[in-house]
Design a protein around this nucleic acid. Structure first.
Lengths: 346, 346
DNA sequence: TCCGTGAATTAGAACGTTCCAAAAGACAAA
DNA sequence: TTTGTCTTTTGGAACGTTCTAATTCACGGA
């Protein structure tokens, strides 16, 4: 019986009356082995409950079959979905994905990175933590290990990225608000040290400019990119006079927070105040009112990143083209009716 | 320079003018080595950009430093939070946690399990996928690898569990509704093939019985444990006559769905219908109305599970005591005022 | 009989660590 | 000088695979 210590390839060889080389070949599905021999070996494998030792194999093999996915915030469903999308692709390609969470801490990210390197990952897909230095992953890449950034890019880094078309998304969303008749539109959440922030605020400004609306810088309100940040940002926004009548939010979490904040002040999102989000998380459609948001096809981007990584690993390169994912505006109820129409019919 | 192929312990030895054994000892922080020698070695390590090869080390070591966390649904913030809590503990204990998602599929779970075994995990913490057979993890355990189930238990399995006190939670929540004057209380969501379901429904029934309320089996409505399930369950519940005036939900996701469903029918959660959830996810307090829910201290349970696992690994045992985590009812706005009082004052 | 060919199998040297047993060196006591 | 003890260092055999370069075998043709 398989007792003290696990069974090895050698135990199977003995049991099947072949050499360890033959067993190895069978394990790799080689066509060199005579089918009946292979069958005998496979039976032996079954009988002793053998489990393959990938660590030992990786010692010989050129490179391992594990890739690391370094995620900045796994408790955010948006990123969790991303991770799960990538995981699916890797799993079915026979490579083992390790998911690691950095909780937006560059320090944790460093530790996690060290662990993954020690495990001998064949590649790394990273959604970098807030505050990551642009060259934090350079030594990985220069060691010949492919790295891809996803969802967030680091300014000044030459590592390939897979990100949504943030400027276009913000542009479309803002244009939608303008089309509804809004003229004083706030931008809520985010900080200027993230590239995404500039991309989204840029799209927002571009839309305003395209419609000849003067941007009021006071209405661009920075803040945390979560519910709490949304609640305080909307408070700040409403303190101005004349108050904005609509808000483009950095992401859906901020939008949810803003909607709660509006209700606290007796305003009704989708009624007398319009809100647009960004990311289109699953919750957006179930919220009351259902949130109009920019869909970024999270799972699709994840899959794209994973496929790109697979190609890089196969090709043995650390280069790849950037991918800017298409976005689309999902119109739901949080922007209410056209306010010019409403005014006219009143 | 470190060029073709990574630097190994041997390169460092050469560079520092010592033997590979010495380098190994330094890497393990052994006190045997003379401090100045250690320093010289460490400098060499720094200079060549050496990265430790854990795979090679694990080949010799009794067991590895990685544990696997098998999660049924990472896109559910509740489980994501659990995973993150465990990860924190492991990371700071110097062991590497791998997070894997099974998407509630026993098949995926099997694949994931195989991968983890091949990586040579030292232990496994599992929140089993819906439909997992009770002995799915028996062979792991009998191979001497510690396994812990968390959040969900499998009937008939002898693997140690770390779970919240489900019966008590459901009891307290139901009692709260009864205290508000409700007599027709529905139980929404879940399926009888999960042990958790029986525990929670059990607590619900016990509370009813304790207050002399006859349980109406028609009001126990099975369904998916997500938003969609909640929406259809509340529809079913409201079709009965007399209709229930309150609902105890299997979890918060179901509760959110039920609240949406109520609004669709012109009822107001927290107004003329009372809702209680279970899990107290982060979103509960931000929802409108804020959801009264049973808090299970997710992160705490995760940490507890992780610590138990660490102990099991250290002790080399596959046994541990079950842990039933304390719960508490967090009262917010979704149950509204006492309806008997309301009736009296009307 | 001898040789060549091709298919199937195998021996043995890696891979980068750990760890045991032993060695080397320094010093004190006999 | 010899012996013993203690500290520090080291050689070399594992660990479980893969992979290259054989080796073996059967068969057909000369």
């Amino acid at each position: 019986m398989a007792s003290r210590g696990k069974a090895t390839i050698l135990d199977i060889a003995r049991k099947a009356g072949v050499s360890k080389s033959t067993v190895s070949l069978v394990l790799q599905g080689s066509a060199l082995i005579r089918p009946e021999t292979a069958l005998r070996v496979r039976k032996a494998i079954e009988e002793v409950g053998y489990v393959y030792n990938r660590g030992a194999a990786n010692l010989r093999k050129a490179h391992s079959n594990v890739v690391g996915m370094v995620i900045n915030d796994l408790t955010n469903p948006f990123f969790a979905e991303l991770a799960v999308g990538m995981e699916r692709v890797f799993q079915s390609a026979g490579i083992v994905p390790f998911i690691a969470n950095t909780a937006e801490s560059p320090v944790r990210q460093g530790e996690v990175l060290k662990s993954l390197m020690e495990q001998g990952v064949a590649g790394l897909i990273v959604s970098p933590a807030h505050g990551t230095s642009p060259d934090a992953f350079e030594h990985v890449r220069s060691a010949g290990i492919p790295v891809i950034f996803t969802m967030r890019r680091l300014s000044g880094s030459r590592i390939p990225v897979v990100v949504p078309d943030n400027p276009r998304g913000a542009f479309l969303a803002t244009r939608h608000l303008i089309g509804k008749g809004h003229r004083r539109i706030a931008f809520l959440g985010g900080f200027p040290d993230m590239v995404v922030y500039h991309e989204r605020v840029g799209g927002y400004r571009e839309a305003l400019a395209a419609h000849g609306i003067a941007a009021d810088e006071a209405l661009v309100i920075q803040g945390d990119t979560n519910r709490k940040g949304g609640m305080s940002a909307i408070d700040t926004a409403l303190a101005f006079s004349p108050a904005p009548t609509a808000a483009m939010c950095f992401n859906d979490a901020v939008a949810f927070g803003a909607m709660t904040g509006l209700r606290k002040r007796g305003l009704e999102p989708g009624g007398n105040f319009a809100i647009v989000g960004f990311d289109d998380v699953a919750e957006a459609q179930h919220y009351m009112p259902a949130l109009t948001s920019v869909a970024v096809d999270t799972a699709g981007l994840g899959e794209r990143a994973a496929h790109t990584m697979l190609n890089m690993i196969r090709a043995g390169t650390t280069c790849a083209e950037n991918h800017i994912g298409a976005i689309s505006l999902i119109v739901r109820d949080s922007c209410g009716p056209d306010i010019t129409e409403a005014r006219r019919s009143a």
